[in-house]
Design a protein around this nucleic acid. Sequence first.
RNA 1: GGGCAAGUGGUGGAAUGGCAUACACGAAGGACUUAAAAUCCUUUGGCUGUAAGGUCGUGAGGGUUCGACUCCCUCCUUGCCCACCA
Length: 803
Amino acid sequence: MIYDFSQIEPKWQKFWQEKGIFRAKMDYTRKKFYCLEMFPYPSGRIHMGHVRNYTIGDVVARYKRICGFNVLHPMGFDAFGQPAENAAIKNNSDPKDWTYKCMDWMKVELKRMGFSYDWERELATCDPEYYRFNQWIFLKMMERGLAYKKASSVNWCPSCETTLANEEVIYGGCWRCHTPVLQKDLEQWYLKITQYQDALLEDLAQLKHWSDRVIAMQYNWIGRSSGVEIYFRLENSDTIIPVFTTRADTIFGATYIVLAPEHKIIEKIKDKILNIKEVSGYIENAKKKTRLERIEKDKSGIELKGIKSVNPVNNEIIPVFIADYVLMEYGTGAIMAVPTHDQRDFIFAKEHNLPMRIVIQPGLDDESILSVDSMTEAHEGIGYLVNSGQFDGSRNYPAKEKIAQWMEKKSIGKITTNWRLKDWLISRQRYWGTPIPVIYCLKCGVVGVPYEDLPVKLPEKIKITGEGGSPLSKVEEFTNVKCPKCKGHARRETDTMATFIDSSWYFLRFCSPRFSEAPFDKNEAAYWMPVDQYIGGIEHAILHLLYSRFYTKFLKDLGLASVDEPFNKLLTQGMVLKDGEVMSKSKGNIVDPDGIIKKYGADTLRLFILFAAPPETELEWNDTAIDGSFKFLMRVWRLLEKADDKAPSLELLRRLHSTIKKVTEDMEGGFKFNTAISSIMELVNEIYKADAANKDVLKALVILLSPFVPHIAEEMWHSLGEKESVTCASWPEFNPEFLKLDKAALVIQINGKVRDKIEVEVDIGKELLKDLVLSREIVKKWLEGKPIKNFVVVPNKLVNIVI
RNA sequence: GGGCAAGUGGUGGAAUGGCAUACACGAAGGACUUAAAAUCCUUUGGCUGUAAGGUCGUGAGGGUUCGACUCCCUCCUUGCCCACCA
């Protein structure tokens, strides 16, 4: 009887599907468990990253199911996006055809892995029945002022010919193609995620089962900082320039102010700027620079000649500069410069030969006194205030609050909170996405498409060239519409939504994927949500999770969702590496899962991936080590030949029950699959050693194995005489009676070093133990009459004699 | 510059205050075989020793403790995230 996985695996996959074992139904009498893995983008074939992600998820789902939970474990496709469009341009084909072909391929591969999905809940975000609710939610946001159109300077990728959200700009480049991003003035749709900034930040505290790493990433991204907006007036004018600072304690040291080149005030005061030509030149130049260039360059800048400002705390007349190191998108787009206590200002002041004044002395004794002439860098640390009027002598950090309050009282400043998080730009000049459901009418203005007209369907079979902006703008029958209000001539919006929208609520849709009246059925979602265990890559730690949290909060406010946070536990799995590097086509180090399945079967692949490393850490692919996983399964398989009804030895039962205990603890305490599997391997070794494979012991072994390697487990389960699926069995409980021992192997240490071992009765008294230990020959030799300073006993574990 | 991880045999990794290297992979030797594969058995951190044993050893240095891979402090290295964020 050989282990023929190629016959076994399809057989049970078919069996599970025909019996509908993984179909999920709402049942208030049972405890639910919603297990979700981040759904894939249909790029063609599944890769090892997918296999790892979905194997981890499948083990969780199968384990919870066998523990008696009512498990929801769905799968679908994040089907809109640019690769499909690019493929269409390249092959002169249709994005829809390409996408559906890819999904079909991937589905075959996912099924071949034996994942326990409820395929009846499958969804694809490019399906009009799905994206109509992207539009539905968008209209609800529009009604509440959360979706709005705004003209502004936006991130523009010249290669993709589309706008990008701040979140999609990675180190000055496009997140997709890494092309340096430019700034462009455009009218675009935004979602007001900032409406939820407080909740998004505060509710992070609820997410006790998320890693510190992800929490920190979200926290930093939202980026709340409290400080003061200080009003600097221009000399001989009523014009006020507000400036944001977190360092109000340094205000008396502000010796000039600096504006971002894009600052609106410049246009208003340009007649008074004496060197306007040079200033305009500088601004033009700054606009042309990519963000990367602005960051890398030294601190360039130019003074606005003829313009002076007034420091409101001491009425000092100070110069005004523009410089591209000041960012328009953060704070007020203007800063007060304190060169003595801010390193960037220090460099700038040195370069432009600007005045400095020390307002914080690190210590008041002679050696630590700073002087402007001898300073080589800014003093950003703590100290005592000087040159600061009535605040002289206070410690600078406690003075911060006092100064802020004083400024507020004098109406020269306002205590404010500044956020790094900006509203979400969602307009994309692309075809393969959700059309934004808006119509522009000359008479009525911006009009939302009426709900009964949804979905606004993407026109099919259109020509996509990849040139000249939005493909939809060239489709006359799409753009040319009647105004829903006045029935007059109107034009349809031709931009599509960012694809992160699609994945921001799919977990809710999975609760009732065929529901047609709303994005999802309230009651179903109330039962299944939140997702109990979410599993995916760390690359989605910021954007996808933040947007999903935002959508969930909005949908709760709409009265649809029942939870504040969508994902209770989050597991971010590590990447799969080959030769220390991430697998990628360009590096040519791809291992194709399909080839592995053909050679070893899905169970071996699953086992190797789970055994080789804990789920969160990186996994180094090893072509020879996978052989070991295969051999282990064959070794398990051969146990069938040994199956008998002889009573198992007490020793074997002990091992069985300690394995049950260990595996259960590993599953409950953070999914330590690698150590769970290694303890099962020890059990198998023990059965071989005992050379007696009692059927009940084997059945327990098979159940323990079933979440990891479901096909071989199912086959063995039936071979052992069972008729139902092993997935319907119940998880074994360990019997503590078997774990009790009457003898304990004690380690004898002398001065903390192991010198001897002794077997004694469990819970032996200290005095009796001491006599026993001291009578040992080895112990006597080491002691050699030296006095014992201390005799430490750790019950049933060790003794340590200190001499 | 800020934040979060991590650093253990030839390799993946185990041990979260109590026998460092479980479980595997690889390697070496042996059994079975005409042979190979498969399977089974033995060995496998360094140094030292015929052996018993001794001794060193978890990135480096200090500390706490009867006892530290584990806790604390300082530093080094690597990975990831953010970053002229005022």
